[in-house]
Amino acid sequence: MSHRTLVDCAALAAHLWDPDWRIFDCRHLLSDPAAGQQAYRAGHLPGAFFCHLDDDLSGPKNGRNGRHPLPDPQELADRFGAAGVSCGTQVVAYDDAGGAFAARLWWLLRWLGHDRVAVLDGGIAAWLAEGRPLSAAVPKGQPATFVIQRQDRVVSTDDVLANLASQRFRLIDARSPDRFRGENETLDPLGGHIPGADNRFFRDNLDADGRFRPAAELRREFTEILAGFDARDVVMSCGSGVTACHNLLAMELAGLPGARLYAGSWSEWCSDPARPIACRTSTIAA
């Protein structure tokens, strides 16, 4: 059996030392980029490799491509291959943020054509709550060949700009409602959102324990916000293409596959003053 959206702690524990499984720790703090690796060194799931959001799951920034541009596909494939990920490997990603960063790894692997990847539901908190062990040992990779079969899961800024007039796809922003409205912006130089976008805060996908809500509830809520659009005509964005992946995972879990990612998201969009910005219900034209 392969896991393609979520996996629970019991299933992961049963395969902890399975040579066909690989675990990746994706813990991260946007305000302290070193915190995730420090937490990993203090204790992580046994056998887990560490993936840094900035260094491993993102590419170089140039000031115009957002805070977390997509990594080079071959370099990313080489990283996974060095950890032993091949076409038959079941990958599990976890974090301590309700899947906010683990979902980025989940999406990236699917972008490369590897669907046998899941997020640990509840993350490391659920693992510890069940009394399961941590380890400080850093695993040694057994290199494997990772073959890229890249999927069409991305739209560009030009696509989003053209969509302002054509409305060919539904754009949904995963940031918190206040940031979407242009309030309390601390990560990007400008506040607001892309005109025509709607808001679905990624944390609304989770219950009070930090686990994903039932698929039926997610399907009902996403169907409402899709407003008649087919899931394949939906594009997710956020601040930098990270938490948007959480909404994409939730849609897959809800049985609404096929949505795509605007990887540059708000941080790329607002880097060019010629692009229009919406705040609350108003739009600021260039």
Rank of each mutant, 00 (worst) to 15 (best):
W106E: 02
L109C: 11
L109T: 10
L112W: 01
R116W: 04
R116Y: 04
A118I: 12
A118Y: 11
G123D: 01
I124K: 03
A125T: 04
W127P: 07
A129D: 07
A129Y: 07
E130G: 12
E130D: 12
E130M: 13
V138H: 14
K140W: 14
G141W: 13
G141H: 09
P143R: 03
F146D: 00
I148M: 08
Q149N: 13
D152C: 14
D152Y: 11
R153E: 11
S156Y: 00
S156R: 02
T157V: 03
D159N: 10
V160A: 04
L161R: 11
L164S: 12
L164F: 15
L164C: 12
A165Y: 11
R168C: 15
F169Q: 02
R170I: 01
L171I: 15
A174S: 07
A174W: 00
R179C: 07
N184D: 08
E185M: 15
E185K: 14
G191R: 03
G192F: 07
G196Y: 08
F201S: 04
R203D: 09
D204T: 10
L206R: 14
D209M: 10
G210Q: 11
R213W: 09
P214V: 10
A215M: 11
R219I: 06
I225Y: 11
D233R: 03
V234M: 00
M236R: 01
S237A: 05
G239Y: 06
V242Y: 10
